[in-house]
Structure formats: C-alpha cells, structure tokens
Computed example of a mutant assay.
Amino acid sequence: MSAPNPLRRLVDKANTYPAWLSRRIITWAFCSKVKLAGTAGLEILSTDGRTVTMRQRNLKKAQNHIGSVHAAAMALLAESATGFIFGLNLPGDKLPLIKSMQIRYLTRAQGDMQAVASISDEQVQAMQSQERGEALIAVTVTDSTGAQTIECDMLWAWVAKKSR
C-alpha cells in the first residue's frame, strides 16, 4: 500500500468548495511550495485529479521585451502544470524529479497563456506500484487566441524518499 499524498488530500478537500474558492486554495498551496510559480503569478484554474489547467497572465513581471509572455515564463507554466499533475498522483513516500524538458517555440504568443496537462491511468498505476520510474507527461500550451505556441516534452521521474 502506498503512503498518503498530502497534496492529493488538499486538492480533494478544496474541490468540495465552490470553484472560485477551490482555485484560490489550490493555487495558494502550490505557489507556497513552488516559489517561482508564485513570483510569476501562475494560477491553477481547475483540476479533476487527472488533468490540470493553469494560466499565466500576460503580466508585466512575466513579459519579454515585445510585451508578450516571456519564453522562460512559458517554460515555467508547462513545467508547473506537468509537475503539479505528476505530484498529485505520486504516493506520499516518493519524490518527484524533472528529468528533462524539451521546448519548441512555434509562434509568437498573444495575451495570456494556458497549459493543460494530463496523466494516464497507466502512468498512475506505474507510479503506485513501482519503486522508481519515469513518465512523459502530456501538456498543451496555448495563448489567448487558442493557438498552440509551444510544444513540450516533460519527462518526470520518481524515486523513494530517503529516511531522515
């Protein structure tokens, strides 16, 4: 039996509240642990436990020299979305680690950015049953026009937490 996951418990509880409150609770919890996400102003819009939707507003602090979301902020958005959904499904006695990320910039972004990341049942089963492993987490990043501005391959790994 795998160890309980505190993030999963928080998300499951938060999702019993109205959507506006659930979004705030989950975003606050995530950004309190992932400081750069809070600094950039990432928001978690929704999650059902297998999929998460995150947003990066086109805020001044996340803009590049031409007034759109900076390439690094787009990478942070994709990495955060995949890491959130990966970590949400990982047993509490395992540690998530980003193993590699490949990002291809396709087109100039317009307005706010949105990332939708998802994890498969097979990936979750492997995370629950294997001591260590890796999973390529699917993510789609679009701008306010709906255009996919970047393609990403986010490879996450898990290992057992070391006893202290």
Rank of each mutant, 00 (worst) to 15 (best):
M1Y: 07
S2I: 00
A3R: 03
A3C: 03
P4M: 13
P4R: 06
N5K: 09
L7V: 05
L7F: 07
R9W: 11
D12V: 06
D12F: 01
D12Y: 02
K13T: 05
K13E: 14
K13R: 14
A14D: 00
N15Y: 02
T16K: 11
Y17D: 10
A19C: 01
W20E: 08
S22Y: 05
R23F: 03
I26W: 10
I26G: 08
W28V: 05
A29K: 09
F30H: 11
C31R: 07
C31E: 15
K33Q: 12
L36K: 04
L36T: 07
A37V: 10
A40C: 13
A40K: 02
G41M: 00
E43K: 04
E43F: 06
I44E: 08
I44N: 05
S46E: 12
G49D: 06
G49I: 05
R50T: 05
V52D: 01
V52Q: 02
R55T: 08
R55Y: 08
R57A: 12
R57Y: 06
N58M: 10
L59C: 01
L59S: 11
K60G: 04
Q63T: 05
N64L: 06
N64W: 13
G67E: 09
G67W: 13
S68F: 12
A71D: 13
A71I: 02
A71Y: 09
M74C: 03
M74D: 06
L76K: 07
L77E: 08
L77Y: 14
E79C: 01
A81N: 04
T82Q: 02
G83K: 06
G83Y: 11
F84G: 15
I85N: 14
N89R: 12
N89S: 15
N89F: 12
D93A: 10
L95N: 09
P96Q: 09
P96T: 11
L97Y: 10
L97R: 00
K99W: 14
S100Q: 11
M101T: 13
M101R: 02
Q102C: 01
Q102D: 15
I103R: 00
R104K: 07
R104E: 13
L106P: 04
T107C: 02
R108N: 06
A109G: 15
G111M: 03
D112Q: 09
Q114Y: 15
Q114M: 11
V116K: 01
A117S: 09
A117G: 07
S118T: 15
S120H: 10
D121L: 01
Q123N: 07
Q125N: 10
A126T: 14
S129N: 15
S129K: 13
S129Q: 14
E131Q: 03
R132K: 15
E134N: 13
A135L: 03
A135D: 01
L136P: 01
A138Q: 10
A138E: 14
V139Y: 05
T140F: 00
T140I: 15
V141Q: 07
V141Y: 08
D143V: 15
D143M: 05
T145D: 14
G146D: 08
E151V: 05
E151M: 09
E151C: 02
C152M: 11
D153F: 06
M154P: 01
M154Y: 04
L155I: 14
A157I: 04
W158M: 01
A160I: 00
K161V: 11
K161N: 09
K162P: 00
S163D: 13
R164Y: 04
